[in-house]
Amino acid sequence: MSYTLQCPKCHAMMRTYNRNGIQIEQCDGCRGIFLDYGELEALTRLEAQWAQPAAPPPPAPAPYAQPGGYPQPAPYAQPAPYAQPGNYGQPAWGHGHGGHGGQRHGGFARMLFSS
């Protein structure tokens, strides 16, 4: 955050904030807000997303999706040597069988090694 602009209304200094990826300047004196070109539209878009009917989290990525259930892609669906669901299983809230392969996700690789 930094001071870059002077408020056109009360002439106090304005402070830059980053709100959800949008830079806004807010006056320390009168709390007025200055938006750059396009930022109002960006905020309106965000607001529309926010106001969407609350609902379930985003669906799983299409390549893995299966109608009527949780994704259970073929590559890891219970390889033969481990086909003992009783010993490994899944909790009631689990994803289904196996998993779709951590190596496809950079995020998963990072998560293996950090808190």
Binding site: P75, Y76, Q78, P79, Y88, G94, G98, G99, H100
Partner: peptide, 17 residues
Amino acid sequence: AWFACGLLPVDRWARFL
């Protein structure tokens, strides 16, 4: 958690367990 969320293939989970 990784396994339950479908992020970890069952063979690796099985090796660990």
